[in-house]
Design a protein around this nucleic acid. Sequence first.
DNA 1: TGTACATCAGTGAACGCGCGTTCACTGATGTAC
DNA 2: TGTACATCAGTGAACGCGCGTTCACTGATGTAC
Lengths: 231, 231
Amino acid sequence: VRRDQIARAVLALTADRGVGGINVAAVARRVGVAPSALYRHYASKDAMLAATIERIGARMLANVERARSGSPDPLVALERLLMLQVDLVRQNRGIPFLLFGDGVQRSPGHRRRLLRFLSSFRSALVDLFAEAKRRGRVRAGLDPAALAVQFIGLYVPSAILWNVTRGRFDMKVQAHRAWTVFHEGICVRARTTTRGRRRFPGEGDAGTGARAGTPAARRRLPRSGAKENHR
Amino acid sequence: VRRDQIARAVLALTADRGVGGINVAAVARRVGVAPSALYRHYASKDAMLAATIERIGARMLANVERARSGSPDPLVALERLLMLQVDLVRQNRGIPFLLFGDGVQRSPGHRRRLLRFLSSFRSALVDLFAEAKRRGRVRAGLDPAALAVQFIGLYVPSAILWNVTRGRFDMKVQAHRAWTVFHEGICVRARTTTRGRRRFPGEGDAGTGARAGTPAARRRLPRSGAKENHR
DNA sequence: TGTACATCAGTGAACGCGCGTTCACTGATGTAC
DNA sequence: TGTACATCAGTGAACGCGCGTTCACTGATGTAC
């Protein structure tokens, strides 16, 4: 009951002043009680922080579930999840600081907590990508674990920029565009003819210029369509 | 002279304990002087932090220059930059916390400083992507500004994970794989036949399932090769 | 070459503020009889 | 229905520690004459 209010106050304060700017007096003021009253609900300031982090983690995992139940297609679920995450961060600007800022670094308890959450979040993403791969929606050469980390990269920089600019940055549009590029990068394409590719003027005349073609060469094309979905 | 040592000490401390864990006593201990001696070189603790941030920013911009001078091909330069950034963060684990953690949030001076740096870094990226687009290395429908933000997303999550796991995460491999996918997502492909694309079992049977195909539909194919490079 | 002075990095003690935490106490709300 | 007691959220004063910062002072290294 009160715990909710405290967690929300912590989150709001983090958004305004960062993790370092959180003090019990300010939290108490936001909740509307005396500082000492908070100790009826939490043993220490650290416990309040821990609970807030735990709460955020739970909501992110809930996002995963919600996205997953929205569609059996893992890629659709992932796109949905991306948007849900963006919304979550938009509603609670303090989240990036709380999860990725320090404070996590200081106490080993927080670090363990965050690690536990991150690994379950990541494994959920890995599962989704692995399933997408099994269904032939993702190219065979790509590692689900690497894609999971990259997926997080689709919104984290937006969140940071959004924070630094104090809201003058459109996370939604950015996330949308990032997804489009990412999807294009991972999806199985029908047929690609290497014929017609040609070198460009700037390419190959400097030392490392020759490497320009390698990413394309590195591409591993799955055989035409895709593997069948087995379930 | 001493300023270098102090900045390095601040950075090292940030890596170990986060921004909140930095205190002048610890910095002084690392430098090898009494705490009060630091005030011969900086007016305040905040000034030490500011100088450290400025220093990191300068190194990142230097990375941009180095990558740019390495090859006239903007995409090659970007890949190079990605690896340089990864190296920089690997060498100074504190960077993510210092740039993206709080502390930036607290004093308006830090925020302005970071904003100024971020905007010049971003504009350098935007320039590179814009040039890549002009050269026809990047699909016409993509926004350079959005790609710039997304580019940052190629290594930021790795940096965070690398920090949380205390080094048990291979940033280099991750960055490499992320680049491959990203490159695949942005590059101009020779020719893509929509023929042969077929629906998959899980696709289209749920409510939002129909959206699965849209990202592919959103693709705007430039006419065959690319525009000529004009300079 | 020697003397007097300026400059400056560094020292250590001390100050003082902010802030997390404690503790005795209050007042309201159940609960037993 | 009324009385006695338990429970518990909340209060406000106070404590005490950590830490950033100051200041008078030292000692070494130039510099002028």
